[in-house]
């Protein structure tokens, strides 16, 4: 089975299965777990588009998560814009910030490790600025007032929120599957495999990379916006801290770098692993992250395309291909 087919089957199966969970259980621990996994999957999708498809490894996707989260929160709190519209506004802002950072970095022809470092630095600059600026709530952060109404993007039931998050993940997965079959997708693959060769073949490398970065930032920004609406609290560390840059990167790598199903598979796996390590190792801080780190190293060493890649190999072995 080809990877795209497998990703499609896997995604449809997983998403369908996930959609019925609230009908089976109303346990808030389960829904909470899943909402968080969806937010993570969305952030991971954004990272995966840029790194998995276009080969640009950002270490600072927190910048876009934070802009999406803070943008949405500030637009509703300070400008009085309806939270749904503000959510979209946050996504757009994240896209714009992505385009600007992308334009600056790609104009300077920063590749490989240099690109990773500069994105990391941009995220840190934003974190320090947001922490020091009174307009963004400074160190006290932002509390979106609790006012549970549909019009406010706040729901009494976790299930409602969960379905919205799930729908967004489904939408983005679909988008990725479509991109894989467009010229844009082919360009990104060409850039990933050999940037200079792609340029020689007439691909406008700069423009395609900016497009990828903008879309990538907007998707991760959507994850930030969802986070803000769900927890109703943000501070500079939540929005722009290194944690989300790392999780958005570890999830797709474990799930399957450059595959449409990878981010969701990886996000679920990471979340489960985190919960399991908490049950096994008790309340020792850091144990779950030790496992994440170990898994990251192992996956890179032994299974280049993560869980999805491994499944594909199994399928191929069985099919005798």
């Amino acid at each position: 089975m080809r990877q795209e087919r497998l990703s499609l089957v896997l995604s449809v199966g997983l998403l369908a299965g996930l959609a019925v969970v609230p009908l089976v259980t109303a346990a808030n621990t389960v829904l909470n777990f899943l909402v968080f996994a969806m937010i993570l999957a969305l952030a991971a999708h954004g990272w995966n588009l840029l790194a998995g498809y276009a080969g640009q490894f950002s270490f600072g996707h927190a910048a876009f998560f934070g802009v999406g989260a803070y943008g949405g929160a500030l637009l509703q709190m300070r400008a009085g814009i309806n939270p749904w519209v503000a959510f979209l506004g946050g996504i757009m802002l994240a896209g714009i910030v992505g385009a600007v950072i992308g334009a600056l970095s790609f104009r300077a022809d920063l590749r490989g490790s240099y690109f990773s470092l500069v994105t990391l630095a941009f995220a840190e600059v934003l974190r320090i600025l947001v922490n020091a600026t009174p307009a963004t709530g400074g160190a006290a952060g932002l509390l979106i007032p609790l006012d549970v109404r549909f019009a406010n993007f706040q729901f009494a039931s976790r299930a409602a929120f969960y379905w919205i998050a799930l729908a967004l993940v489904a939408l983005v997965t679909l988008l990725m599957l479509v991109i894989e079959n467009t010229r844009f997708g082919a360009y990104l693959t060409a850039i990933r495999e050999n940037e200079d060769a792609a340029r020689a073949l007439g691909v406008d490398v700069f423009a395609e990379k900016i497009k990828a970065m903008t879309l990538s930032a907007a998707i991760t920004g959507a994850a930030g916006g969802l986070y803000a609406q769900y927890f109703l609290y943000l501070d500079a560390n939540i929005g722009f801290g290194p944690w989300i840059s790392i999780e958005a990167l570890v999830a797709p790598i474990i799930g399957g770098l450059g595959t449409a199903a990878g981010p969701l598979v990886g996000a679920l796996a990471l979340q489960m692993l985190g919960e399991m390590s908490k049950t096994v190792a008790g309340r020792i801080p850091g144990i779950d992250l030790v496992l994440f780190g170990l898994l990251l190293v192992l996956v890179i060493a032994f299974m280049r395309r993560g869980v999805v890649g491994q499944l594909q190999r199994l399928a191929m072995a069985r099919g005798g291909a």
Binding site: L143, Y233, D235
Partner: peptide, 13 residues
């Protein structure tokens, strides 16, 4: 304090 702000609000729901 930051944790308090978030968790009390979550509990209030």
């Amino acid at each position: 304090s930051a944790i308090c702000l978030a968790t009390t609000q979550a509990a209030a729901r």
